[in-house]
């Protein structure tokens, strides 16, 4: 029932988003409007896909690492992906093989290196140290951001890459949507396929191991899935943080700790949040655009602190 309702809500918000923007589209003339076909539709679809991917990957990381503060942005996955993507763009390595673009691939290589570095730093004999995990993520992120800034300055394309880095859907094209689609489908499918393992992992590594879960293999696989989704999303839309943190937390408030539901609702609510935030991004200071990454950081950073404080209790 609730799923149906959320799904309908998502459809309504998508339809509304088609209309809203610096130039409003009249509903009765939508199909004849070139703005709809060339700008609004790709942008709205891309925002929905990215919102789903980021929030599902946040939920997966929280489950795999058993850390409520895990989020692709905080763990350095996004920054790593941004470095990879920026390198691909500035070194003119952007090409595509069999329709698969090299940019998400480069983004994936760099972000997977980042996330395993962070994981390795936080791992000890007893398991994963939750504080060190977050702190290493922050430090690795800062390093990657510096490298990113350096790439941007050296490449000389400061404005275009900088705007992309702050996170934005303003350049969205249907091409981006198609680039993202295979990662989206594979990511969501495998995440859901492993929802049983995510549930059992809640009980801790030792116990999960006695309940038929190969803990280490499963954790690695889940991290790869989350990284794949995040890096693909970052490579088309830039750095958008905190979606993967806010949404799964919000979702858990009404569906409890069942990853089957958490993943579905995270996808639906993640798309909703991204659509609303992007509608704000393109209208609030119209005709100027606010990068959506800035909006998310303005909402997300205080939320991160709120969770931090609640968990301390």
């Amino acid at each position: 029932m609730r799923i149906l309702f959320s799904f309908l809500l998502l459809i309504i918000i998508i339809l509304l988003s088609f209309l809203i923007g610096p130039i409003w589209i009249r509903p009765d003339k939508i199909l004849a409007d070139p703005i709809f076909w060339q700008i609004r539709m790709p942008r709205v679809l891309l925002a929905a896909l990215v919102g789903m991917m980021l929030s599902v990957s946040g939920a997966v990381l929280q489950g795999a690492l058993k850390n409520p503060l895990a989020d692709p942005y905080i763990l350095g996955v996004s920054a790593g992906a941004a470095v990879g993507a920026a390198l691909a763009i500035s070194l003119k390595l952007a090409f595509s093989v069999f329709g698969i673009s090299s940019i998400p691939f480069m983004a994936f290589i760099f972000s997977i290196a980042m996330v395993f570095l962070v994981y390795w730093l936080a791992k000890n004999k007893e398991g994963i140290n939750p504080q060190i995990l977050i702190l290493s993520g922050v430090a690795v992120s800062a390093f990657a951001s510096a490298v990113l800034a350096l790439i941007i300055i050296i490449s000389g394309q400061i404005q275009s890459i900088y705007f992309w880095m702050l996170g934005s859907f303003s350049m969205a094209s249907m091409n981006d949507v198609f680039t993202l689609l295979p990662y989206y489908l594979a990511g969501l499918f495998f995440a859901y396929f492993y929802s049983k393992e995510l549930n059992v992992l809640m009980l801790g590594d030792d116990l999960a191991g006695t309940m038929g879960v190969d803990v280490l293999k499963t954790r690695m696989f889940l991290i790869v899935i989350a990284t794949l989704m995040t890096s693909a999303a970052v490579s088309v839309s830039g750095l958008i943080g905190f979606v993967g943190l806010i949404i799964p937390h919000f979702v858990r408030m009404f569906c409890g700790q069942n990853y089957r539901l958490i993943l579905i609702y995270s996808a639906l609510c993640g798309a909703l949040l991204m659509l609303v935030a992007d509608a704000l991004a393109r209208t609030v200071l119209s005709p100027m655009e606010i990068p959506i990454g800035i909006i998310m950081a303005l909402i997300g950073a205080p939320f991160f602190l709120y969770i931090l404080r609640r968990n301390k209790r």
């Binding site: 396929f193 049983k196 309940m211 409890g256 700790q257």
Partner: peptide
């Protein structure tokens, strides 16, 4: 066992069924 926020008693017990359940 570490208590898990947001997990009801019956859900925790139901996790014990997971080795008998098929995926999905």
């Amino acid at each position: 066992l570490e208590p898990i926020d947001g997990l009801k008693v019956k859900d925790l017990v139901m996790l014990g069924r997971s080795p008998h359940q098929k995926r999905l």
